[in-house]
Computed example of a mutant assay.
Amino acid sequence: MLRLIDATVGKWVRHTLFILIRSYYALFYNVSCSGKHLLQTDHGTLILATHVSRHDGPLISAILYSTKRIRPTVHYDEYYHWMQWLPMWIGSAIPMSSPKSWPDERRAARKQQTLRVIHRVLDNGNCVLLFPAGMARRQPQEIIAPGLSGLHDILRSKPDTPVVLLRLDGLGQFQRATHDLFWSFLGRTKGRRHVSVAITPLTDLDPDLPLPAFNARLEELLNTPITDDL
């Protein structure tokens, strides 16, 4: 029954919501995106994205909506926040992590449940959007906390999962802000902010590495400028 509701009413609600979100970003941001075809050639792709601002999740989901269904991952506290739960649910977000106050056994069970959901989504041919750093940047570079192991666990349990790297530029507070003249007819000198999204295949992230080395390599990849080759 839930699947039927999701495929009918849920699909129309998501479609309407993402049209509104995409219209917002079209009006106030000049977004270019390269590499979207990679999501169409591979099924069940894991998208690893830089996290430069609070706009990242909605913007990425909106611009890729017509390419592939994207299931974003969000922190447990954000998903169940009373002001955010409804849009998170409509957008089919996947909550990750768990409250630190929970017993270790309950946290471990929650982690295994999340892994099962993610792999089920990937097996169904949909994409999962994950921000490896866990939170929006509070510094110029992407920093992965030593204990974050979600991505490591996902790839270790299924190493053949297709993975792409998505890097955002021009959106964060530590990135250069360039504007066009879209709103110049209203007398505004600043128009839409230019945002670049680059999607590239990622084949050299070895899940067999120990967690510290794995996170160090991932951190290096996330901080590679868009203009550089991986």
Rank of each mutant, 00 (worst) to 15 (best):
L129A: 02
R137G: 05
H15L: 15
I5W: 15
T8E: 08
M135Q: 14
V13K: 02
I143G: 02
L39Y: 07
P99H: 02
Q113I: 02
N215S: 09
Q112K: 13
L151I: 14
H51R: 03
W183Q: 02
I63P: 03
L186V: 03
G191I: 01
A198E: 10
F182R: 13
Y65D: 00
S97Q: 11
H43L: 15
Q112E: 14
R192S: 02
L186D: 00
V31Q: 08
M135G: 09
D153Y: 12
V31D: 03
H15P: 01
R176T: 13
L186K: 10
I154K: 06
L17A: 12
R3C: 08
V163E: 03
I226E: 03
T227V: 14
Q40N: 14
D42A: 15
P95E: 01
L168I: 08
S92D: 13
R3M: 12
G10W: 11
L39M: 06
T189H: 06
R69W: 07
L211N: 05
S98G: 05
P201E: 05
V74H: 04
R3N: 14
W82S: 11
I19L: 11
S149H: 12
T8N: 13
Q40L: 14
G35Q: 07
G125K: 06
R107Y: 06
P210T: 06
Q40M: 12
R217S: 05
L148N: 12
I143K: 13
D204I: 05
S149F: 05
L151E: 01
S34P: 02
V128T: 05
D229N: 13
A198N: 08
Q112N: 13
D42W: 08
L130S: 06
Q40T: 15
S101C: 07
I70Y: 05
T227S: 15
G57R: 01
R110S: 13
H152M: 06
L17Y: 11
L202E: 03
N126K: 09
R192Y: 03
D169Q: 09
R110W: 03
Q112C: 05
L221I: 10
T41I: 14
D229H: 12
T67I: 08
R71K: 12
D6K: 13
A216V: 09
R71H: 15
R22Q: 11
I63E: 04
V117M: 10
R138L: 12
I63V: 15
S149P: 06
L151R: 04
I63Q: 06
E78S: 13
S196E: 09
P72Y: 03
G147Y: 14
P146A: 10
R71I: 04
L38S: 10
L64S: 01
D169W: 08
N126G: 09
L122H: 07
K190W: 04
S92V: 07
Q113D: 12
L2K: 14
S184T: 09
R110C: 10
I154D: 08
I63G: 00
H179E: 04
S157V: 07
K158D: 09
E219V: 06
G44K: 09
T161Y: 06
W85P: 00
L168C: 00
T73S: 07
H15V: 07
A133G: 11
T16Y: 08
L2S: 11
L205E: 07
E78K: 05
S196F: 01
L115F: 12
R116S: 15
F174Q: 01
K100Q: 15
L129I: 06
L48D: 06
